[in-house]
Amino acid sequence: MDTTDIKPFPDHTQLPESDGTFVKNFQEHPQSILLTDSIFPHLQRLHPDGQFCIGQDCGIYWRMTEPPEKGAIAPDWFYVPGVPPTLKGEIRRSYVLWQEVIPPLIAIEFVSGNGTEERDKTPWQGKFWVYETVIRPAYYAIYEVKLAQVEVYQLIGHNYQLLTPNNQGHYFIDSLKVSLGIWQGFYQNLELPWLRWWDSQGNLLLTGEERAQRLAEKLRQLGVNPDEI
């Protein structure tokens, strides 16, 4: 068999990083930032070697198609443990499964319609089917800001099983040692039911700004003006 004409599978530098469509509304971008900002210190403690990456509306290539971008799915937020944040010194343009091998631990979709797209189990087309059958993140979450709710599925065997929330209405992600749930509050000029993380003791994981505000308040209680430090 002559292998001289066989082309190697493309890597992230050879695949499109966008399908050219608008995919974000005015809430989804700050929601992604909120998830990343608040969990990042926790992930740094979990990975002191820095071997992890976070994707925000980035493509995960799972099959070869024409055009290539039809073979990708773009979770609104996902986290992959045990992989370097860059590849050969380059920022990832996408996450290519046939090169990376390690699947995301969790993928999160933000519902912008009625949720049927995120729950679609149509073979080779539906998002739920692609996550459950091919990409196989250990956890798949569907967040609906309009309904102030989130569903979290865990991959058990070959299928996703819907988890039951705890007494606080949060879902514990065992591998991460954090919980995921709804927090009603004010963030980036919007009062909404945001999707947020809590630690294993039930404490809300704070953003950098929230941590700074808490520190400033403690200093004021000690009689120190934080603006003079």
Rank of each mutant, 00 (worst) to 15 (best):
I39H: 08
F40I: 02
F40E: 13
F40L: 14
F40C: 09
P41N: 06
P41W: 03
H42E: 04
L43E: 03
Q44I: 11
L46W: 02
H47N: 15
H47F: 15
D49Q: 12
D49W: 01
D49C: 06
Q51L: 11
C53Q: 08
G55H: 00
G55S: 11
Q56H: 02
D57K: 07
G59R: 12
Y61T: 07
Y61K: 01
W62A: 05
M64A: 13
E66V: 13
P67S: 02
P67E: 03
P68S: 04
E69W: 10
A72G: 06
A72D: 05
A74R: 04
P75D: 09
P75S: 10
D76Y: 09
W77Y: 14
V80R: 01
P81Y: 09
V83C: 11
V83E: 03
P85Y: 11
P85Q: 10
T86E: 15
T86K: 10
E90W: 11
I91L: 12
R92D: 06
S94A: 15
L97M: 15
W98D: 02
W98Y: 09
Q99A: 00
E100A: 08
E100N: 04
P103H: 07
P103R: 04
P104Q: 05
P104M: 01
P104H: 04
I106W: 03
I106H: 02
A107G: 02
E109K: 03
E109F: 03
E109W: 01
E109M: 08
E109T: 05
F110L: 10
S112D: 11
N114G: 09
T116L: 10
E117P: 00
E118Q: 07
R119Y: 03
R119H: 11
P123V: 08
G126S: 13
G126M: 11
K127A: 03
F128S: 03
F128C: 06
F128A: 01
W129H: 05
W129S: 05
W129Y: 15
V130M: 06
V130P: 00
E132C: 04
T133C: 07
T133Y: 03
V134I: 15
I135Q: 03
R136Q: 12
R136W: 03
A138S: 14
Y139K: 10
Y139W: 13
Y140L: 05
Y140W: 10
A141M: 08
A141S: 14
A141P: 11
I142F: 04
I142P: 01
Y143N: 04
Y143L: 08
E144N: 14
K146A: 15
L147A: 15
A148D: 12
A148R: 08
A148Y: 09
A148L: 02
A148G: 13
Q149P: 00
Q149D: 12
V150S: 07
E151P: 01
E151R: 01
V152D: 01
V152E: 00
V152W: 03
V152R: 01
Y153H: 12
Q154R: 14
Q154I: 12
Q154M: 13
I156N: 12
G157H: 09
H158L: 15
N159F: 00
Y160F: 15
Y160V: 05
Y160M: 06
